[in-house]
Design a protein around this nucleic acid. Structure first.
Lengths: 153, 153
DNA sequence: TTTACCATTGACGTTGACGTAAGGGGGATG
DNA sequence: CATCCCCCTTACGTCAACGTCAATGGTAAA
């Protein structure tokens, strides 16, 4: 239980960048936008485990379509201890909205996956039987019909 | 079974635009990029039900994070009947990659939802008990610890 | 005919998220 | 000492996805 803990590990900018597959420029940019603020040792940036965790959150947020500004706001809301009940309830509403957005997106994604999987099946069918047999043509038309049915509302 | 079918419905540019909550400029832009090509009556664009279906796909693709270029490619792959087995298998691989991307995204989304719901719970706890009781402070610290545990790898 | 409205095609402007180039500091190694 | 490598800041460049503006045309009601 001494101080040789795993959490006192720090990271240089390029370490963190390469670990997450981004450039150093990106990390400096995020700092500029108020998303990160690592400690400094002189000029050099020193990233802690917490900074690393924030970065993970930022990148995940990006992947699901939030802008950097939105991500910054959400992170601020959680570190914002001051502020009355009103402010809290506003924050709560914002979080709930984001959740609904994400759920909508998840459903979009599931539809898209289904769409692409249907496309795969269609391509596979075409590859297995190269000669334009009536059988395949039939299934092709069937697929098209199904696709259309799903698409036209 | 006469021709008073539902599918012969056509749309003007502003009809389609307002139905999907985009501007006419957007539709012209998509056409410029080869994503749509409605028929013309003179200068005016005439959108068919198929065009409408394509638009639906485009917008969904956008919502899940594909670029217009990617969407165009995917749509081309499906209307591309010519091309040998090699081309087909390349297409198939592309589709499979997109599917994996989407599945990754879905998992990201689920993580984000969990994150935000935890944030909601945290805010709610704070609202219910406004006075800074030790009890709440404890649960706050507990939450922070949990969050960190989830975040740091 | 005039007014009103919707359509068209350019062309340039804007925003977010970085890339890239220029110029310079500091330390470790041959 | 010279060379390398990593770090820093400042500032301009870029790309996608449209927005906005200008000038113009067709048609339908007043």
């Amino acid at each position: 239980m001494d101080q040789w803990d795993a959490k006192i590990r720090n990271y240089s900018i390029s370490e963190l960048a390469s670990e997450f597959g981004v450039t150093a420029r990106t990390l400096r940019f995020y700092e500029d936008k108020g998303l990160l603020n690592p400690k400094r040792s002189g000029q050099m940036r020193i990233y802690s485990g917490a900074d690393r965790a924030r970065l993970r959150l930022i990148l995940r947020g990006k992947r699901v379509g939030f802008t950097l500004e939105e991500i910054r706001e959400m992170m601020e809301l959680k570190t914002l201890d001051a502020g009355g009940t009103v402010h809290l309830s506003v924050s709560l509403q914002r979080f709930r909205n984001q959740i609904n957005t994400l759920k909508q997106q998840r459903s979009d994604i599931e539809l898209s996956i289904a769409e692409l999987e249907a496309g795969c099946a269609w391509l596979e069918a075409k590859m297995i039987n190269r000669e334009p047999s009536e059988e395949i043509k039939q299934s092709a038309r069937a697929f098209e019909a199904l696709a259309l049915a799903r698409l036209e509302h």
